[in-house]
């Protein structure tokens, strides 16, 4: 099969995104649960709803944003299209579509993972067990990533897989940072201070970045250092810069190795993004961290739309399935 169907390219791209999104959502829930063990607990859970712009839907369907209700909404609620269960359900459904292309092991793992998740009862996500649930999700998603790395045939399909995964990861890292912005950074004057280290600590750990951060900054921990690390450090696989770098590599590969025409507009959006990232944390703070993250998300989205239009065969007017 020498030519990848546009529909398959799209399904690969989104399968990678859905799994990455599920993993990152587990990370956000995990860190929120850690944060919520204090007096502002309730506010923490509500902030997730704002982060994903789900507050109106949630209050219409579920009323008050209690911890239990928000957790259920984002974990096992099959009516919420952005729950972990729904994301993995869509990933599995894409994998089913892709079975002619992907390895049997990739499909089997997602199939079993999803069926196992679907069988879980409400007691499995109650707050005392939430950390364990999140670990299970992270592990399942990482198993998928590992199997994919070890078994998925390396051709154009692999590029689309990486494009989806890295774009989603970059987007989620900005959200993870943004979600904790209000809680961990009460006022601009505190940026350089040592306050509330435990929270930044938790944030880094939720992105599996604590030890890497310590390598770069053996002593101390300022909010600016952490945010800069998560945004710009090219050696940290979840940093926005590292993800965007990977996206650039794959786009170039598609264009010059696989001779796929029509990646021009996507390359243009990529350049915009690179320009935006060509700064340091001081510049970001001057601009406003929240505003900056917002803009990065907009640019990532614009890039994603161009990839859909240029490479995945979406009709010009169509928006992504997000």
């Amino acid at each position: 099969m020498s030519n990848l169907l546009s529909r398959y390219a799209d399904a690969i791209f989104w399968m990678a995104r859905y799994v990455e999104r599920a993993e990152d959502l587990a990370r956000v829930l995990d860190v929120t649960e850690t944060f919520s063990r204090d007096s502002r607990g309730g506010q923490n859970w509500r902030s997730i709803l704002e982060l994903y712009s789900d507050a109106p839907t949630f209050s219409r369907e579920h009323g008050e944003a209690t911890a239990a209700a928000v957790i259920r909404f984002y974990t096992l609620d099959d009516r919420n299209p952005s729950s972990i269960l729904s994301n993995l359900g869509m990933a599995r459904s894409n994998a089913r579509t892709l079975r002619p292309l992907i390895s049997t092991e990739m499909w089997t793992q997602l199939n079993i993972f999803y069926n196992r998740l679907r069988a879980l009862g409400p007691q499995e996500i109650a707050e005392p067990r939430l950390a364990r649930f999140c670990s299970m999700i992270k592990e399942g998603c990482q198993t998928h990533t590992g199997i994919t790395e070890g078994t998925f045939y390396r051709d154009e399909g692999w590029c689309f897989y990486q494009l989806g995964k890295q774009l989603e990861r970059a987007d989620q890292t900005t959200r993870l940072l943004d979600s904790k912005y209000h809680n961990v950074l009460p006022s601009p004057e505190d940026v350089g201070s040592q306050i509330d280290v435990s929270r930044w600590n938790a944030l880094l750990r939720s992105a599996a970045g604590y030890h890497a951060f310590r390598k770069i900054h053996p002593r101390g921990m300022t909010p600016g250092d952490v945010a800069g690390f998560m945004l710009f450090h090219e050696g940290f696989p979840r940093s926005v810069a590292a993800c965007v770098d990977e996206v650039g590599g794959r786009l170039t590969q598609l264009r010059s190795v696989y001779n796929i025409p029509g990646a021009t507009a996507a390359m243009g959006r990529l350049d915009d993004l690179r320009t935006l990232l060509d700064t340091d944390i001081d510049g970001v703070i001057e601009f406003g961290l929240h505003e900056y993250l917002d803009r990065v998300q907009q640019y990532l989205n614009a890039l994603s739309v161009e990839i859909g239009r240029d490479l995945l065969g979406h009709a010009p007017a169509a928006t992504s399935a997000k």
């Binding site: 169907l5 546009s6 529909r7 002619p100 154009e156």
Partner: peptide, 20 residues
């Protein structure tokens, strides 16, 4: 390739598949 109807198009009485 496993295709669905929407992956195929006809032009001048020939059949084509939409690829990247």
């Amino acid at each position: 390739a496993l295709v669905e109807g929407r992956d195929l198009v006809t032009e001048y009485d020939r059949v084509y598949v939409r690829t990247i």
